[in-house]
Write a protein that binds this DNA or RNA. Structure first.
Lengths: 342, 342
DNA sequence: TGTTAGCACTCTTACCTTTTGAGTGCTAAC
DNA sequence: GTTAGCACTCAAAAGGTAAGAGTGCTAACA
C-alpha cells in the first residue's frame, strides 16, 4: 500500500467520516470546514481527483461528490482512524446489561447480541461457546419418572448440557449402575467430539446382551456430546438493517443469508484474529458485498471459544463500533470465564 | 351482518381471491372469466358498485378496480371461503419436519415456527408451553462440582426446567439432605407460580439459622418455578414480511413490534379460541393495522398450553393458510402430548 | 511550484405538462 | 334485469425544462 501525503490522508479521513455520518456523497466545499488546515475548495478538488485516480475514492457520477471506495475504507481502518474511547459510563452500562443474565452461556450470548444490536444499530451475530477439544468431565443420570430421565454432561471447557431420555422399560437401579460403569470406563476423559455414531456402534458390540437396554441412554449421551462441541448461531437486530439506505436494495437477500447461519459460521472460522474487519467484497459472499462485517473472538479461561460480531453497511462507524465491540467481547469473556470456574 | 344475494357473494369471493393472488385492484373485466356464470362486465360493475356502497369493497381511486375492505375480508372468512384441504403429501411433510426435533418443547416450537414461516411466507410467532396452574411435581439437585450443582424441576404439566447454581461453600451431604427436606415439605405439590420472592421471604424466616446457607439454592429454585409458568415468545421468518408490498411501507415498525413480543402476547391471551383470525384494525395495535393475524392454540394432554400463529398482509391467503396452521397446530399438540406422557 | 479564482460543463433531481389507458358510472336500448 | 356504448376520471408513464450541486480545467498569482 502506497504512502499518502499527510494532506491526502487528512482529506481521505474527512471524506470517510463525513460520508459515514451523512450517507451522502461528499463535495469539496462541504469538506472545507472539516479539515484541520485552510485551503480553497479547488485545492481539495485537486487532491480528491488524485485520490480518485489512486482508487481511494469513487464518484457515483461526474457531477456528484466523492464516496469512499472499499480500498479507501481499508486504508482508513488500518491507518487513519483513531479509535473512540468508551466512557466509564458506557462501560458500566454494558456490564450492567450483561451482568443480569448469567444463568447459562446461551443466555449471556443472547443478551450480548441484543445489547450489541442496540448499541450499533446493526444486526448482531454471535456463536455460543464451543471447544472441539473439550473432554467429557462428568456425566449424571437423573431419574425423573419411572421411564424418564435427564442426562447431564459437563465438559472440561465448562460447557454444561442436558437432555431428556425416555425409555420403554423402567429405570432400575441396576440399569443406572450399569450406565455409570460404562460411562466412567468409556466416556469420561475422552473428547466429546469423538463420541459419534461410529464409536457407539463399536461400543454396542462390546456390550453384548446389555446393548439393547443401554442403547437409548447411550445414544442420548452421544448426541449430547456431539452438540457440546458444536456452536449455535444467534442473530439479533435484523430489523436494524432496514435503517441503512446503503443496503436497503437487497435487505431481503441479506437477511436470508444471515438466517441460514452456516455460511457466516464458515466465514467466522476463516478469520480467527482477535478483531476482524471485512469491508465489502473482502469476504467471499455475494450477499455481503455491500456490507461490512466486524467480528471478534471471545475467550473463556484463556481459550478461544466463540465469536461476537456485527453486520452493517460499508459506511459503518468503524471508529466507534470497533472499540465498542472489543469491550463487549472482553466483558462476555470475563463473565463466561467466571461462570466456568469453580 | 346483512345477507348478500348469491351473485354478490360469488362476485365478492372472486374479487377477494383475485386480489389475494395478484395484489392488484380488480376490475370488472378481469373478473368475468373467474365467475361461475356469464354476465357482462356492466352487470358486474353494477354489482360491484353496490358492494362498494355496502362497504365490502373499496376503490383506491375513481378509475381503479376494487379492493376488498376489512369488512369484505371478514365476510369472506366467515361465510364464503371454502377451506383448502391439505394433501396427504403435505401432511406427511409437516409431520416429518416436526418429528425430528423432540428433544425439548422449545425445540419443537422453534421448528414449528420455522416450518410455518416457510409454509406461509409470513412471519411466524409462537409461545412455548405454559400452564399457570402447573404444580411442582418433582425437584432434583444434581451436584456437578464441589460448589456447583444443577437443579432440575418437573411440573404437573410436564414442563422440565433446569438451572445451574453456584455456592460459596461446599455442597455437603447434609446440605443436600436439608434442601430435599425443605423442598418436599414446601415446594412439591404447590403451584409453581406461587413460589415467588414473597414466598421465599416468609420461608427464610421460618428456616432460622439455616436460611443463609440455603438461600442460593432456594432462590434458584424459585426462579426456576416462576419461569416454568411463563411462556417465551418465538419469532421466525421476519424477512418474509419484506415480500409483501401491502405492508412494505412500515415493515420496520412491524418488525420492531413483533420483536418486543409482549404486546403480541397480550393479544394472544385476549383471544383463546381454537382458531383466531384478526383482520386489519380488528386488533388494537396501530402497528398491525395493515396486517392480518391468524393464530391458533395448541393443547398438551388436552390442556390449552400455547399459541402458534402467523402475521402477514391483510390479503393473505386465508383459505389455504388457516387449514395449514390448524393442521400444524394439531401436530405440535400431539408431539408435545406424547413427550409429556410417561 | 503549489494554490486559487473563475467558469464552462455535466449530470441528477425536482417539477411541470402531456399522453396513455385502465376502469368507472351513466344512459338508453333490448 | 341486462347490456352496449360512451363520456369521464385519474394514476402512472413519458417527455421536457429548469435548478443546483459539484466537477475539471485554465490562467493568474504568491
Amino acid at each position: 500500500m502506497e504512502e499518502l501525503s499527510d494532506r491526502k490522508q487528512k482529506i481521505l479521513a474527512a471524506v470517510i467520516e463525513q460520508y459515514i455520518a451523512t450517507g451522502e456523497p461528499v463535495g469539496s466545499k462541504t469538506l472545507l470546514p472539516l479539515l484541520p488546515f485552510s485551503v480553497s475548495s479547488a485545492t481539495v478538488r485537486n487532491e480528491m481527483a488524485e485520490l480518485s485516480e489512486m482508487g481511494y475514492l469513487e464518484q457515483p457520477h461526474t457531477s456528484a461528490g466523492r464516496v469512499p471506495s472499499q480500498m479507501g475504507y481499508r486504508y482508513y481502518v488500518d491507518r487513519l482512524m483513531n479509535n473512540y474511547e468508551l466512557s466509564d459510563r458506557e462501560k458500566r452500562t454494558i456490564e450492567m446489561k450483561l451482568g443480569t443474565s448469567v444463568r447459562s452461556p446461551e443466555k449471556v450470548l443472547e443478551t450480548a447480541s441484543s445489547v450489541l444490536a442496540d448499541m450499533t444499530n446493526c444486526a448482531a451475530v454471535s456463536t455460543t461457546p464451543s471447544d472441539s477439544e473439550a473432554v467429557i468431565r462428568r456425566v449424571e443420570l437423573v431419574p425423573i419418572g419411572a421411564r424418564l430421565a435427564m442426562i447431564v454432561m459437563l465438559t472440561s471447557s465448562g460447557i454444561l448440557k442436558s437432555t431428556i431420555v425416555r425409555t420403554d422399560y423402567e429405570l432400575t437401579l441396576d440399569i443406572v449402575e450399569a450406565f455409570y460403569n460404562i460411562v466412567n470406563k468409556l466416556f469420561i476423559g475422552n473428547p466429546a467430539s469423538e463420541m459419534n455414531l461410529a464409536f457407539l456402534q463399536t461400543l454396542a458390540v462390546s456390550l453384548g446382551d446389555k446393548a439393547l437396554i443401554m442403547t437409548p441412554l447411550l445414544v442420548a449421551l452421544s448426541e449430547l456430546a456431539s452438540t457440546a462441541g458444536k456452536s449455535e448461531m444467534l442473530l439479533e437486530g435484523q430489523s436494524n438493517l432496514l435503517n441503512h439506505s446503503q443496503i436497503s436494495s437487497n435487505v431481503y437477500e441479506l437477511m436470508e443469508f444471515l438466517r441460514k447461519g452456516e455460511p457466516l459460521s464458515n466465514l467466522f472460522s476463516a478469520h480467527k484474529d482477535e478483531m476482524n474487519v471485512l469491508i465489502g467484497k473482502e469476504n467471499m459472499y455475494r450477499e455481503l458485498e455491500n456490507s461490512s462485517l466486524i467480528f471478534s473472538r471471545y475467550n473463556i479461561g484463556g481459550r478461544d471459544s466463540g465469536t461476537l460480531g456485527i453486520v452493517g453497511p460499508t459506511n459503518i462507524d468503524y471508529a466507534r463500533l470497533i472499540p465498542g465491540l472489543k469491550y463487549l467481547t472482553s466483558v462476555v469473556g470475563k463473565i463466561l470465564t467466571d461462570a466456568v470456574e469453580e
